[in-house]
Nucleic acid binder design. Structure first.
Lengths: 145, 145
DNA sequence: CTAAAACTTGACGTTGGCGTCAAGGGCAAC
DNA sequence: GTTGCCCTTGACGCCAACGTCAAGTTTTAG
């Protein structure tokens, strides 16, 4: 397959494919004239690369990961990286869930015809917080003339 | 509170706070000399901003969202945005879950002392795929001399 | 009073994953 | 041959959310 075919089938740009090669994520044979020639498995591989990129793994990390995918085994160092990335992903999922709930609270607040509903953020468990603005704070400088 | 206090309590840099103000996410009073003065609630607000940013909402979107948070109601347009972002977040969570499972498959593959386990990616349901490299492809140019 | 710490605006630098020309070479069809 | 599409390398552009000086003012601590 040539680069355009892979690009179409994997749903990415040819620019991306050249970039992946540049980053050492994807290799290609060449014709005498220098055109890239890919095996059919390249499509799968590109999809995997995309999935990892979408998940926030930097290309540098993926580069270290791919040999492990190809050969089936890797060094302890690689597995530590993998574990770390796994943890990062899990944490990111938690962050997303929290943000989504925050959005949901906002729409609920806005659509809920209850009394005193509007700036009722105080009722939501939003991490540690101190008393909201005590009348006389600690370090007060010249407060607006 | 001054900017440094808010920064410490919210766990962000002062640069970030000035950036948020620049982007219209966070407002501050000023002393006569021009220094920023924040209410205690600013810490909460910054945490919320951070949460949304972490979730991938662009500051432009958050800017449109904050009035709704403050007043308790917003336009239909804002709610459409919110729904779209909610969907984006859900999709992102699915992507993360998929990537995490891919990582798990890799470690399982590497640690599993089974025969013919190594490049056994073919057994995993990886999206649509055609036969991997038929002996004679369609458009074949001069194949390496 | 003075030195240190904190604050101000302004402006340029960084990072990643590409997009987007630009200028040329290759290749199948007609 | 020639038309038109696909390919090549090279290089600059982009965008967001800040980091990082720089150079000057203010506030605070001793």
């Amino acid at each position: 397959m040539r680069i355009g075919d892979v690009a179409r089938q994997a749903g990415v740009s040819t620019r991306a494919l050249r970039y992946y090669e540049e980053q050492g994520l994807l290799s290609a044979d060449r014709t005498v004239s220098g055109q890239r020639v890919y095996p059919g498995s390249a499509v799968e591989r590109v999809r995997m690369i995309q999935q990892f990129l979408t998940a926030g793994l930097p290309s540098r990390t993926i580069r270290k990961l791919m040999p492990c995918v190809d050969t089936g085994h890797g060094s302890d160092e690689v597995f530590e990286m993998l574990a770390a990335e796994r943890a990062r992903i899990t944490a990111a999922m938690a962050d997303l869930a929290a943000a989504r709930e925050a959005l949901d609270r906002i729409v609920a607040m806005a659509h809920h015809p209850d009394p005193e509903h509007c700036p009722a953020l105080r009722e939501t468990p939003w991490g540690p917080h101190e008393a909201a603005e005590p009348p006389a704070a600690v370090q007060q400088s010249v407060p607006v003339s």
